[in-house]
């Protein structure tokens, strides 16, 4: 074998064969990939200017108020074309002297999953299959081992079942959130009112935060969300319930679009048993403070020092 590096004679034919061979390899590869077997997702008609604008859009915290306004208008145009309905994207700011906290009475919770229903109706999650922020665990009485929990208890059997209690779990909005630490691009952070939010336009979809979360609160859009027009909630917030896109993380935001306007989160409103207590931890007269100071409360996985602002209590 003679080493050849710049021998060019008689190469025409050989080169052609090589090229054809490599082309065939590439073509066979394309065939073997079995691509385009899935339907094209509905992305809406977004103008080139908007596409460029949203591509180069900066991090929420680095945008000026004008830039945020532009981003919101881009989103509203996109939603309009995608869902044929006017979606209002607000940007409520955290209220001063407010730190949100949540308490849940496990002796009241009956496992109806009404909170889950209320949440998905409010927060524009992907439907069918449903993406849900709240998971209600059916637990055996007499222990507190999550591994024996059953989140899939059937909707055809009445609850509460004898010998069971129910433990709804959602984002605990930790004071020391491991997800925020894990995010490589600061796309998720804790706001001054204690709500851990996500900039859906900055998230790169690496799922580091989902791995870091001890409460399994973070849910990923594995594909373009399926949000039928009749299920769209048109009153939305930029950092909370505006419709998401594929490839980004989302989770409970204590319904920031509601709670920052003084209203109750959707899960609290939907709960038919009054098991859910939401309020301002900085207000000593608030219900949540009464519960924390007068009831026997516990938090999940406290040993991890994440300092959840989501407590459980019982009568």
């Amino acid at each position: 074998m003679k080493f050849t590096n710049n021998n060019l004679p008689d190469l025409g034919r050989r080169k052609a064969i090589r090229l054809v061979g490599m082309g065939a390899a590439v073509g066979m590869g394309a065939l073997a990939s079995g691509s385009s077997s899935l339907a094209t997702p509905n992305m809406g008609n977004v103008s080139l200017a908007d596409q460029v604008g949203s591509f180069f859009q900066d991090h929420y915290k680095r945008m000026s108020p004008e830039e945020i306004q532009e981003a919101i208008e881009r989103l509203e145009r996109k939603y309009k074309s995608k869902y044929q309905v006017e979606v209002k994207v607000g940007d409520p700011k955290p209220l001063p002297d407010v730190l949100f906290g949540y308490a849940l009475n496990i002796s009241k919770c009956q496992g109806y999953r009404e909170c889950v229903k209320g949440c998905t109706a409010e927060n524009n999650q992907s439907k069918d299959p449903n993406l849900e922020y709240i998971r209600v665990l059916e637990m055996d009485r007499g222990q507190m081992n999550l591994e024996t929990a059953d989140p899939y208890y059937p909707s055809t059997e009445e609850v509460p079942k004898p010998g069971k209690f129910y433990l709804p779990i959602q984002c605990h909005h930790c004071e020391n959130p491991p997800c925020v630490k894990a995010c490589p691009v600061k796309a998720t952070w804790k706001e001054p009112d204690g709500i851990v939010v996500i900039d859906y336009n900055w998230c790169i979809g690496c799922r580091m935060c989902a791995n870091a979360c001890p409460y399994w609160a973070r849910k990923f859009n594995w594909t373009e969300p399926n949000l039928p027009v009749d299920t769209v909630n048109t009153q939305t917030g930029y950092l909370s319930n505006r419709p998401r896109e594929k490839g980004v993380m989302e989770k409970c935001t204590f319904c920031a679009q509601r709670s920052r306007e003084g209203r109750m989160p959707a899960c609290q409103e939907a709960c038919p048993t009054g098991a859910r207590v939401f309020g301002n931890l900085l207000d000593p007269d608030s219900e949540i403070r009464y519960v924390l100071e007068n009831k026997n409360v516990f938090r999940l996985k406290e040993e991890l020092n994440t300092e959840p602002k989501f407590w459980y209590y019982s009568d």
């Binding site: 490599m22 066979m28 590869g29 394309a30 073997a32 385009s36 594995w222």
Partner: peptide, 28 residues
Amino acid sequence: WAWVSVLLFFISMGGFTYLEQMRVGLVI
């Protein structure tokens, strides 16, 4: 060149599959 072609086959297969993943998301 045969070796390179074999590699190109795999790269092309992976590349086109990745295009599909870009299009519909990690659901694949």
